[in-house]
Write a protein that binds this DNA or RNA. Structure first.
Lengths: 206, 206
DNA sequence: ATTTTGACTTTTAAATTAAAAAAGTCAAAA
DNA sequence: TTTTGACTTTTTTAATTTAAAAGTCAAAAT
């Protein structure tokens, strides 16, 4: 049975997340979170030593559920291309839900804490690791010719990331249609890219 | 024979370019350019109505020589992949020379004039057009299977652009080695991508 | 004892203002 | 026709203030 502290902590995390989703990290204050919970802002300090640690905790939660969904999706699909497209789908749904955390307030955006930045890089690493392992499995299945999975996966991810949503060019809020187009392009790229790796593997080459 | 005005105009453009290369558009003033030419800043206004028009003129010159080099390079290489890699080379050399114009001063960077922005988009269009036409010619040569050249070229360029140098992440000045790695990655992507197109386009679905 | 809070200090961000520098104008001189 | 000195206007930058949020702590409440 959960101790009281843990429950309260989770309530705070939940309330914070709700604020963060709508207003971003920097535009959310402790007193706002506290007001939502009918407590005083000082109480939060009993559970979290500072704002950074609360933000980190929230980010960790999101990332964990992201990775979880990713793995579920991959396990539910067959074939390398379909698995990779599945990754795009998961990314798409998370982006639509949490893009405000990436955008935050336009001007503020660059000053994320070192911690958060380290975190972000860690995430990229994990994604890369997942894709690499899928590549290797595809090679074992004979679905893909032998390649330097590390290098190839890294190139693919970089290529996809370049297609990422650019919050500076667009008008603040990403609209559903251009996001859809973006993710469709990513999927198309995956198809061509993997086909390129397969080379003669297709049974119907002339 | 060139009239005097044209010569002087070109001198100003040249001097401005030299300043721009080192300090960017925003950190360069008319009086600095004038000082370099031993004239007063007001004289520049005789040739250019305002700063924007001088910048535009300089940018036009660079872009023109860029496109020129691009076409030369393409005409000198054989085979779609080699031509595309040639494009990367030209882009690389121009970037190394003119990256300051893209970076400018970090904070100032976002406020380029509308004109310059339109210009930039125009350049992207032209590049796309070139790649599309190379795709079509490759198809005619039988080097490539029939595809929607427009769409495919656009996906390739987007994928490549994502791999672009990100001046916010790095530490200001792009170092030669990481640029080299970047452009090598771009070339690798091109190889895989085109290879993918060569056996992908046929409707051989299972 | 654990948790919460009021009263407080410190830090950081936002707004205001003042000063400086650059952009741009124009009539007169070269 | 081209250049310049003397000028005004606009934009940047820096300095100052103000407000708000972050963070501390001892006392009160549960």
């Amino acid at each position: 049975m959960k101790p009281d502290t843990t429950i309260k902590e989770e309530l705070i995390i939940e309330a914070a997340l709700n604020r963060f989703i709508h207003f971003g990290f920097n535009k959310t204050t402790f007193s706002e979170i506290a007001r939502d919970l009918n407590i005083t802002q000082q109480s939060i300090y009993y559970y979290f030593p500072d704002k950074k640690s609360l933000i980190t905790k929230v980010a960790e939660n999101i990332m964990a559920s992201f990775l979880e969904e990713l793995l579920v999706k991959i396990s539910q699909t067959k074939g390398l291309v379909e698995k990779l497209k599945g990754i795009v789908d998961v990314k798409a749904s998370f982006f639509e839900k949490y893009f405000m955390l990436a955008i935050d307030h336009p001007k503020e955006n660059l000053r994320d804490s070192d911690e958060l930045h380290r975190f972000y890089l860690e995430m990229e690493d994990k994604q890369l690791a997942i894709v690499v392992s899928e590549f290797n499995e595809a090679i074992e299945r004979g679905e893909l010719k032998k390649t330097d999975a590390d290098k190839t996966a890294s190139i693919l991810l970089k290529a996809l990331s370049s297609m990422q949503f650019d919050y500076k060019q667009q008008h603040m809020i990403p609209d559903h249609n251009s996001l859809r187009e973006l993710f469709d392009n990513q999927k198309e790229l995956i198809t061509i890219f993997i086909s390129g790796l397969q080379n003669h593997a297709t049974p119907c080459s002339n």
